[in-house]
Amino acid sequence: MAGYDTSRAAQALRLVGVSKTYGSGENPVRALDGVSVSLAAGTFTAIMGPSGSGKSTLLQCAAGLDQPTEGRVFIDGSELTGGSETALTKFRRQRVGFIFQQFNLLPALTVMQNVALPLRLAGKKVDRKQCRSILEKVGLGDRTNHRPAELSGGQQQRVAIARALVTNPSVIFADEPTGALDTRSARSVLTLLAGAVREFGQTVVMVTHDPVAASYADSVVFLADGQMVGTLAHPTAEAVAERMTHLGDEVSLRRVVGA
């Protein structure tokens, strides 16, 4: 695994007044409403909120998978502009890693081939030694020639983590990465993500609904009704759960103050 790139920007991710509206006419849906947040490089941030709060939309806009209706997004100091899809795809392949709930591994490829795929897509030379080193670090050094169907769910997600790490991206976005796993496997995956941050300076942004998962992060950003309604540093599962129960009250208070 490559070490921390000290030439990177101090802020790995910055959103400035980001809004996203779906549809038009009489009933548009405003999924995000003026969200501004800055996340330092080498940090692990959890994004939390009730269903429909805008968590997934925030991740998609921040990662360049969707274009915000308003606002600006910066990754590693470079703005995600409204250029061509080809340019945006190239940017994502160079700067962004993804981990999904359902792993998204290609079943016909071996573990090694799945991990090397981002390098091939980016037109980079595949360093099998580097890929093997990453697989060893996630505990799969003896599974390089296996296919996804021959692995457990937790092992498949560890392959997905290795695949996200292989290009040494500026930011890794994880969308409910433990949602399909049992408790033991989930704990293992979260420990790996936290280790990637602390040992190698990676930056991880994780959407989750689970207070226990959020407790592995350095901080939590809370969303409600498409707005950022608070943060929590050094979270515990208990503190996160308590904060989640009062998000509705915070939204109501903001509306009264803003009225």
Rank of each mutant, 00 (worst) to 15 (best):
T21V: 15
E70P: 00
Q202I: 03
V212E: 14
S252Y: 12
S215V: 07
N145T: 14
Q11S: 12
V126C: 00
A62M: 03
E79M: 09
V229I: 15
R147G: 02
T231G: 13
T178K: 06
G153N: 04
K55D: 01
T245N: 11
T231Y: 03
A233P: 10
L109H: 05
K90H: 12
T183C: 03
L32S: 10
N168L: 02
A194G: 15
R143C: 13
L193V: 03
M228H: 13
L193A: 08
A149G: 15
V138S: 01
G153D: 06
L232D: 03
S56W: 02
S51L: 09
L32I: 07
G64R: 09
A194W: 06
R92H: 07
F222H: 04
G64V: 00
R143P: 04
V29M: 09
R93M: 11
Q130G: 04
A194N: 11
A31C: 07
L39F: 15
I99C: 10
V29T: 14
E199V: 00
K137E: 13
G23F: 10
G82P: 04
L121V: 07
Q157V: 11
L88E: 10
N114S: 06
T57A: 06
P68G: 04
R163K: 00
V212W: 07
D33C: 13
N104D: 11
M206I: 07
A217Q: 00
L151E: 07
P50G: 13
R198T: 14
G49N: 01
L39E: 01
G64C: 04
R120V: 14
A174L: 05
E238H: 12
A12F: 02
V256Q: 14
G226H: 05
A9Q: 08
D210V: 01
G201I: 01
V29Q: 08
G201L: 10
P148A: 02
R158Q: 09
Q202R: 15
T245F: 09
T203C: 08
H234S: 14
G23K: 08
S53M: 07
L119K: 01
V73D: 00
A196D: 03
Q156L: 03
E242H: 13
K55I: 04
Q155P: 08
A160S: 08
V257A: 12
S219I: 03
S215R: 09
L80I: 15
D33R: 15
K20Q: 14
R147Q: 13
L223M: 06
F44D: 00
L80D: 02
S24I: 02
A186S: 15
C131K: 04
L135R: 05
Y22H: 10
L80M: 11
M244D: 08
L32F: 09
M1C: 10
V256A: 14
V115E: 00
Q130T: 12
A186V: 05
P68H: 07
G141M: 08
H146Y: 11
V29S: 11
V18F: 09
Q101N: 04
A194S: 15
V212Y: 12
T69C: 11
C131L: 00
H146R: 11
V257D: 11
G258K: 14
A164I: 01
E199K: 12
V73M: 09
T208V: 02
G77T: 03
M48F: 10
T110G: 11
A180E: 13
G34H: 11
C61E: 01
R93V: 07
V197P: 01
R95L: 05
A259S: 15
A12M: 02
A213D: 12
T89K: 06
V221L: 15
A160N: 00
P235H: 08
